[in-house]
Design a protein around this nucleic acid. Structure first.
Lengths: 123, 123
DNA sequence: AGTTTAAGTTAGGGTACCCTAATTAGGCAA
DNA sequence: TTGCCTAATTAGGGTACCCTAACTTAAACT
C-alpha cells in the first residue's frame, strides 16, 4: 500500500490522538495538522475507501488493523530519526519537528541502518 | 525567498547540469527530474518570474545571482546530510538518494547542527 | 420539548504540479 | 532553398490537497 506523505500524516495523527484522548474527532485532526475540518472529512473519507480507517459520516473514527500497522510503522521511523538527530546534536524539540517531515520520505533501507546505528549508540 | 520543495529541485538540477554540460536544455532538466518538457517550461517560467533564472522562450537557461546562491545552498545541505547518513552506516548510493529528499525539508537549525557534527566526526 | 451551540458536511473554488496531443521554431543536410 | 528532425511551446486536462461559506446534525442546557 503506497501512501502519499500527507495520508501518512493523517494516519499517524489519528493514531496519536486515539492514544492520548481515547476518541478521535475531525476537529482534533484538523487542529493537529493545521488544516480545516472539510479537508479532514475529505481525507478521512479517502482513507476509509482504502480500508485504513473505519468511518461513517458523523460517527467515530478508528484505524483498521492495516491502518494501525501503517501508523505504527510511521511512528517507529519517527523515533529512530529523532534519536539520530539528537546524536548529531540537534535539540530535542527541533529534532522532533524535523523528524516528522523526514519520516515520510526516507527509504526502508536507510531507516534500518539508522535503527541499528542508534541502537549501537545506546538508544 | 520561500521556495517549494519542487522549485528547489529544479534550481539544483539546473545548477548541476550547467556545471556538468555547460549548457542547460529543457529536455535535460525534464530527464533529470523524471518529468515531461511542458512541465519544465512551465516551472522555468515561474522561476524566471521570481528572478531566479533568466530565460527567454527557446533561449538559454541560466541562474541569476540569487538563483545560484539558493542552488548552492541546497547542494550544501545535501552534502551534509549524505555525510550524516553515511556515518549512520547508510550505503553511499542510498544515502545520496535519500539526502535529495531530506535536504528540502529540514530546518536551518538542524542543518547547522549536522554540519558541525560531520565536521567533528572528520567529514 | 425547544433552543442554542459546536461539530461535521456540502458546495464551489483555488493552487501547484503533472500529463498528452498538436503545433511551431531552428538547425542542418540535400 | 526546401524539407526533415528534434527541441520547445501551446492548448486543454487531471489529481491531490487545501480553502471559505453555508447548511445540517446532534448534543447540551433551560
Amino acid at each position: 500500500m503506497k501512501l502519499s506523505r500527507r495520508a501518512e500524516d493523517y494516519l499517524r495523527i489519528i493514531y496519536e490522538i486515539r492514544k492520548e484522548k481515547g476518541r478521535v474527532r475531525i476537529k482534533d485532526i484538523a487542529c493537529a495538522l493545521g488544516v480545516r475540518p472539510p479537508t479532514v472529512t475529505e481525507m478521512v473519507d479517502k482513507l476509509g475507501r482504502k480500508g485504513l480507517v473505519t468511518y461513517e459520516k458523523r460517527g467515530r473514527i478508528s484505524l483498521t488493523e492495516e491502518g494501525e500497522k501503517l501508523a505504527k510503522n510511521v511512528k517507529d521511523r519517527h523515533v529512530a530519526i529523532v534519536r539520530l538527530l539528537e546524536i548529531a546534536g540537534v535539540p530535542g524539540e527541533v529534532a522532533r519537528k524535523d523528524a516528522h517531515k523526514i519520516e515520510h520520505i526516507v527509504s526502508i533501507e536507510t531507516i534500518e541502518c539508522i535503527k541499528n546505528f542508534v541502537r549501537k549508540m545506546g538508544g
